[in-house]
Simulated assay, not measured.
Amino acid sequence: MAEFKQQGNTCIVSGQLDQQAVRSLWNGRDSILATETSALQLSKIEYCDSAGVAFLLELVGIHAAKGVSLKLVSPSEQLKKFIILYDLNDFFIEEAK
């Protein structure tokens, strides 16, 4: 299961963000992040599948609809494989850890 931990303007996502986790998080997706969140820090994600990636992009879309830019930063090594495989480089930002 994925955990979202707010630290100031950044939310640290950890654990597994897979189809099962997305199902349990889906109904609360509009309120999972604080309004002031400007970055999702993803280096602590242990496993993410296509449903998890779609969920992250959904969160970006929800914030954009509210007029707030949400950056997806520091993807984990496992998540980087997905980013390369599906050519999602434009959505994720690599930052120093």
Rank of each mutant, 00 (worst) to 15 (best):
M1W: 01
M1C: 09
M1P: 11
E3Q: 13
F4I: 14
K5C: 03
K5H: 05
G8V: 06
G8D: 00
G8C: 02
C11Q: 01
C11N: 08
I12G: 00
I12E: 05
V13T: 02
V13M: 05
V13C: 04
S14K: 13
Q16N: 14
Q16I: 07
L17I: 03
D18G: 12
D18H: 10
Q19G: 11
Q20I: 03
A21W: 04
V22L: 09
R23L: 06
S24H: 10
L25P: 04
W26G: 04
W26F: 09
N27S: 14
G28E: 15
R29W: 02
D30Q: 13
S31R: 08
S31A: 15
A34C: 03
E36A: 13
E36R: 08
S38C: 09
S38D: 14
S38L: 00
A39N: 07
L40R: 02
Q41F: 14
L42W: 03
K44E: 13
K44L: 05
E46N: 08
Y47S: 10
D49R: 10
D49N: 14
V53H: 01
V53L: 07
F55G: 06
V60E: 08
I62N: 02
I62A: 03
H63P: 02
A64L: 06
A64Y: 00
A65F: 01
A65D: 08
G67R: 08
V68A: 02
L70K: 00
L70M: 03
K71S: 12
K71W: 07
L72C: 00
V73W: 04
P75F: 11
E77F: 11
E77M: 09
Q78S: 15
Q78R: 14
L79F: 06
F82S: 09
I84T: 15
I84L: 12
I84S: 13
Y86R: 03
D87I: 01
D87E: 11
L88C: 03
L88W: 06
L88H: 05
N89A: 14
N89G: 06
D90H: 10
F91Y: 15
F92Y: 05
F92M: 06
E94C: 07
K97F: 06
